[in-house]
Structures are given as structure tokens and as C-alpha cells.
Design a protein around this nucleic acid. Structure first.
Length: 585
RNA sequence: GCACCUCUAGCUCAAUUGGCAGAGCAGUUGACUCUUAAUCAAUCGGUUCCCGGUUCGAGUCCGGGGGGGUGUACCA
């Protein structure tokens, strides 16, 4: 609404790499478009809080966010607004929401803000519940925006002029929509089309209750029962007197210019809002690319309200891999909060920033998350070394900071997979984690876990909730008696040597460190073959085979598998007492 | 049916407006005294789906064909 003075890009607006990626190119287009329309660059997202706002919906937020943020980095007064479509009707009861059962079906047809929140929520409506949940994540991800509740707007009468305008132009709107209702009937006798036409001729008229009636782009919410199972029976352009009837039996005549219970139908509502908020940029999902979709129809409807359809690149869907059953039982698709629990905010931002909008991508929750982190760390190293590509640097910059400042970072980056392995075998015992990590880098030992956060916290959450079962290392509770009794003489001797020493080896407790355990475990096979424990041996195939066999034996006895984390690390984590319990023949 | 996206190394993907086709992982080889699910290096690997066109030059642009994917049919 505010027409700002011309916003000129600052002279030294962006570094080279910030101009290199898709976000920057889109920002350029938005600037040109805003100037052409003589308005401020406004980017918009529209979200319907009809259920959990999942990672797919999150692209609806991140895409305009990134573009608006780029504009702000250039010193331009851009705005990102999020329209909460909380005045939309409650369409169906989503599956998998804790405490929500079929009894919620009684609310179908009411605005989302009139439906009670799921049990246990601190919010006072369905819409408020899911909005609050999402907004907490948006904030954590560094997304700054102006939120607009459609319920509040409609209730305040903000759109009354637009509603009356639409009603007066209902025939024009109807004609536009009409073009898409029945597909332009090709002249051929395609049978699918025939079938569609045949089934559409009779049944539909009864269903929407508008048989023979006039088209109205407005739908009242019944003032008696609260639902939109209503039909407008009459409307007078001059007086704005409207009569509607509801399926509940209620019928009344009201003055539409004063009436506050109802909204424009969706396909008209959206273009109206483009005009009202002077939106220049609003991406939409690929489901809008079909002819007749609200975005396509909006091209013709926006001018009815004196505006043009905004630039609206379409984004491809976001997938997700490796979601553990426990979290997916909670309603299907994971939400940003699920992702932020196992990865840092910059990493999540990076996933959305590095892919062009028309590319689909997966947010990895399984083992692929470790790969995601490997790539992330590699990018940070390349950036530090100055070998990263411009577009990569741009994505990195957008991930780690916004125009408002930097996001929390982990000072000391230890590989996610390493941390996962250590956290797993120590059961998250941080004293042990530190003890193991201390030996990781001798030149620069880790003496404190704090610099490893917040990444370490995410790893701990991941190991607890998403690490695949078959990747967990599960240390046996009790000795494998059967296997211990079936040991060969050589194996038995090896275990005794490992635990109690002999032939030059000390008892295992004597040097209970990563280094000491390394020497001990590798030494066993050597002394068994008559070598010194610290002999340097190269290329002895038989020795290598014996060592490998010994390791396999230890894995079987300790974790019941053929392989596992490095033995010294594993022993350290298990602790000497338990090691003795499990390995004593 | 219509619309949109996509096809590049074994896999996942890069390649700024047309300008020498590149990474990661996997593989192979080697180093780290030790063939382990934490390290490092080197190396192998391509008819960019096919046919045609524009161009000095095409993964990129245009036309056609093929494969894969997504959306969608009077509602909100």
C-alpha cells in the first residue's frame, strides 16, 4: 500500500558472488518489475494452517524470504509478507494428529480459526496452533516477515470494498472462470472428455446447490452454525442486501457492506490480495502450473482488482528421506522443527538456497544426513581456501546469514558421522564423548564440548530419533555364553592376552587410553605369532588375516555383529569393567 | 487429454548471461608401523537421451522425437 520513493540500488550493492545465483537473478527481476509497477518490492507467501506446516510448505516461505533478503542486503526497502489463510474452511480432518479423532469432523466447513486446537495445545484454535508451531521454526531459521491473518482482515472489514467490487463484477469473474470449467471441448470425440462432460452435466448441479442460480464469488459463513454450507439466494448491487440459506436450516438477509462472516472464494480471494497488498513476487507450487489453477486464472482475475499477477516462478516439491517411523506417525510429512532438531539452521537454509526453485530436492533424515553434512563441511573448507565457485559461495552466504545478522554457528566442526558414531557407542554420555574426542586431533585436542555445539546437540537428537536401527551399535548386556564356550584355543588365548596381558603385553587396564588400547588390540596377534608387541610389521598377510579375525571375534562378543566402530574407540566407550564381563572366556 | 519440470561419470548432482564438461560418493592404487564403519593423496570413469536447426562456437537457444516425474478437470 505504501508507495515508497524510488529505491535505488546502493552503488556497491553486492559482491560478485552474491550476484551469481538464482536468488540474485530473481531479485534483479523483482526490482525491474517493482519499478515498472511503481511500487515497493513486496514478496509474499500464502500458507493455509490446516495442519502441520511441513518442509514442502516451507519452500513457499523460504523462496520469497531469500529473494526479499537479497534485496535488503542491497539496501532496498523490500518486504516479505506471509498471508495466513486461516479463514479458509476446515476441509477434512487430517490423519495422524495426536488426540484428534473423527469427532473433529463436526467442524468441517468452519473457518480454521473457529475450529478447536488439538488437545494439549496452548493456542485457542486449530489455525493458531499450527501457525504458532510454524512461526517458532521460521524464527529459528532466520526468516523475517510480516504475518497477516486473513481471519483478522476479513473480520475487520478490511476487504469490504473488494468484496462488493467482486460481487458487482461477478458476471465478468464468472466468465473468466467459465473458460476453465469445462476444458475447451476439442472437436474430437475423445471418450474421456465425453465421460467428463456426461458426468458433469447432472450431478454437479445438485452438489454445489447453485442449480440455475447466479454465480457469486463470495461465500458466507452461516451465523448460526458457523459453516460455509451456504448458498446465496439473492443479492442487490445497490443496497448490498444479500440473502443466504444454510444447510443447517438458517436463512437470513443481511447487508453485505456490513456483514463480516464470509469470504471471497479462493480463486478470487488470492488475486484480490495481490492487489490489496501490491504483491510483486509470489512463487507457487507446481500444482499451480495446470491450466485453470488459481494462479493461472489469477492472470485474468487480478486486473479485475486493478492489479497484475505477480511474478510467480513455480517451485518443485521437497521430499524427505529416512524419516523414522516414530516421527512420521505424527501426521506424515516432517515439519521444519523436525529438521531443525537434527540439523543446524544454516544447513536447512542451505538446502533451500542451493537448489534452483524448479528443482526438487530431498531433506535427508536418515544416513544421507551425514552426507549432507559432509558436503556442507566440504563447502566451508572450500570457501575458506578460496576455491569455491561463486554460486556456491552465494548459497553459503544466504545459509549462514541474513540481512539482519548471522545465524548461530558451530565453532569447531567435527564431522557429523564421527560425532554420530561416538555419541552412539557412548549412549550420549558426554564425559565419555569428550574423552574419546580428546584423542581425535593431537595437534589441537578437544578439551571442551562447548565449541562443538550446537552441532553436537543435533547429532545427539539424530542418534536418538533417526539413526537407522541397523546402524546402531548395540553393546551386549550379558556375555554371549554360547560363543564363549565354543571358542578355539587360539581365540581363548587371544582374549586372555588382551585382558590380562602376558608375553610383553600389560593388563588392559594399565593404559586405558585410545593409544594404549590401540597397541593392545593390535599387539595380541603379534605376540601370538612370536613377535614383539610393538614390532613393526609390513606386508605380512597371515598376520593381517589373524588380526582381522580377532577383530571380528571381538565384534561378535561385544556387539553381536561382524563389524563395528574402531575397536579401541569401542572399548573405551564400553568401559573396562563391562569389557571384561563380556570377553572373559 | 492438457500443462509444467526433467534427462550430464556406476550413483547424487554442478557448469554465472552460449566460450576448454566439473565435484562429492562409489571404484581402483597408494600413504598413515597395523586390510576395522574417524585420516590423507593420486587415479579411473563422458557420443551431456536421439534427430535436425541457429551460431565462429550449443549441456545451455529453436523445432521434432523418445524416456522419466509432477500436477490437473466446474471445489475451496
Amino acid at each position: 500500500m505504501v508507495v515508497t520513493e524510488s529505491q535505488q540500488p546502493s552503488p556497491e550493492p553486492a559482491t560478485e558472488h552474491e550476484r551469481a545465483d538464482w536468488v540474485s537473478r530473481l531479485a534483479d527481476e523483482v526490482i525491474v518489475e517493482a519499478e515498472r509497477r511503481g511500487t515497493r518490492p513486496v514478496a509474499a507467501s500464502g500458507i493455509s494452517p490446516s495442519g502441520p506446516i511441513h518442509l514442502g510448505n516451507f519452500r513457499e516461505v523460504m523462496s520469497p524470504h531469500l529473494v526479499a533478503d537479497e534485496l535488503r542486503r542491497r539496501g532496498i526497502d523490500a518486504e516479505h509478507l506471509i498471508s495466513w489463510d486461516d479463514y479458509d474452511r476446515f476441509r477434512k480432518v487430517p490423519a495422524g494428529i495426536d488426540g484428534v479423532d473423527e469427532s473433529w469432523a463436526q467442524h468441517i466447513g468452519k473457518p480454521l480459526t473457529s475450529v478447536p486446537a488439538p488437545p494439549g495445545s496452548t493456542e485457542d484454535s486449530w489455525a493458531a496452533h499450527f501457525r504458532a508451531q510454524a512461526e517458532a521454526s521460521f524464527a529459528q531459521a532466520g526468516v523475517r516477515y510480516r504475518g497477516i491473518s486473513q481471519t483478522e482482515q476479513y473480520a475487520a472489514g478490511a476487504y469490504t470494498e473488494q468484496i462488493l467490487h467482486a460481487m458487482r463484477h461477478r458476471r465478468e469473474i464468472d466468465a473468466i472462470l467459465e473458460q476453465y470449467r469445462t476444458l475447451p471441448a476439442a472437436k474430437d470425440e475423445d471418450e474421456a472428455l465425453q465421460a467428463a462432460l456426461a458426468s458433469g452435466s447432472g450431478a454437479a448441479n445438485e452438489d454445489d446447490g447453485s442449480a440455475g442460480g447466479e454465480y457469486y464469488p463470495y461465500k458466507p459463513y452461516c451465523t448460526a452454525c458457523g459453516t460455509d454450507l451456504t448458498t446465496i439466494e439473492a443479492f442487490d448491487d445497490d443496497s448490498t442486501e444479500m440473502t443466504y440459506a444454510c444447510r443447517c436450516g438458517h436463512r437470513e438477509t443481511v447487508l453485505l457492506r456490513e456483514f463480516r462472516s464470509g469470504k471471497l472464494v479462493w480463486k478470487v480471494d488470492w488475486p484480490m490480495r495481490w492487489a490489496y497488498e501490491r504483491v510483486v513476487f509470489e512463487p507457487s507450487g507446481v500444482d499451480h502450473q495446470s491450466p485453470g489453477s488459481s494462479f493461472q486464472v489469477g492472470l485474468e482475475l487480478a486486473p479485475v482488482f486493478g492489479w497484475e499477477r505477480p511474478l510467480g516462478p513455480m517451485y518443485a516439491f521437497v521430499g524427505f528421506g529416512g524419516v523414522a517411523k516414530m516421527s512420521s506417525s505424527r501426521g506424515g510429512a516432517p515439519v521444519p522443527a523436525d529438521a531443525l532438531a537434527v540439523m543446524e539452521a544454516p544447513v536447512l537454509r542451505w538446502l533451500y538456497a542451493r537448489r534452483r526453485m524448479n528443482q526438487s530436492f530431498d531433506v535427508a533424515f536418515g544416513s544421507d544426513l551425514q552426507r549432507t553434512y559432509d558436503e556442507w563441511d566440504a563447502l566451508l573448507r572450500k570457501a575458506a581456501a578460496g576455491t569455491a565457485q561463486p554460486a556456491e559461495l552465494a548459497a553459503l552466504e544466504r545459509a549462514t546469514a541474513t540481512a539482519d545478522g548471522r545465524l548461530p554457528e558451530t565453532p569447531r566442526r567435527v564431522a557429523y558421522r564421527t560425532l554420530a558414531s561416538v555419541v552412539d557407542i557412548t549412549f550420549g554420555d558426554e564425559v565419555q564423548i569428550l574423552r574419546i574426542l580428546r584423542g581425535l586431533d593431537e595437534a589441537d585436542p578437544i578439551v571442551d564440548l562447548e565449541p562443538l555445539r550446537p552441532r553436537l546437540d543435533r547429532v545427539e537428537a539424530w542418534v536418538a530419533t533417526h539413526m537407522p536401527t541397523d546402524e546402531h551399535t548395540i553393546v551386549r548386556d550379558v556375555p554371549d555364553r554360547e560363543a564363549l564356550d565354543a571358542l578355539t584355543e587360539v581365540e581363548r588365548e587371544a582374549l586372555v592376552l588382551l585382558l590380562d596381558g602376558g608375553q610383553g603385553l600389560p593388563p588392559i587396564e594399565d593404559d586405558w587410553t585410545l593409544d594404549g588400547l590401540t597397541h593392545q588390540t593390535y599387539g595380541v596377534a603379534k605376540v601370538q605369532r612370536g613377535l614383539e608387541p610393538d614390532a613393526i610389521v609390513k606386508g605380512d598377510k597371515a598376520l593381517s588375516a589373524a588380526q582381522r579375525a580377532f577383530f571380528a571375534l571381538l565384534y561378535r562378543l561385544l556387539v553381536g555383529r561382524e563389524t563395528g566402530p574402531r575397536i579401541p574407540t569401542l572399548l573405551l566407550a564400553i568401559g573396562s569393567e563391562r569389557v571384561r564381563a563380556l570377553l572373559t572366556p
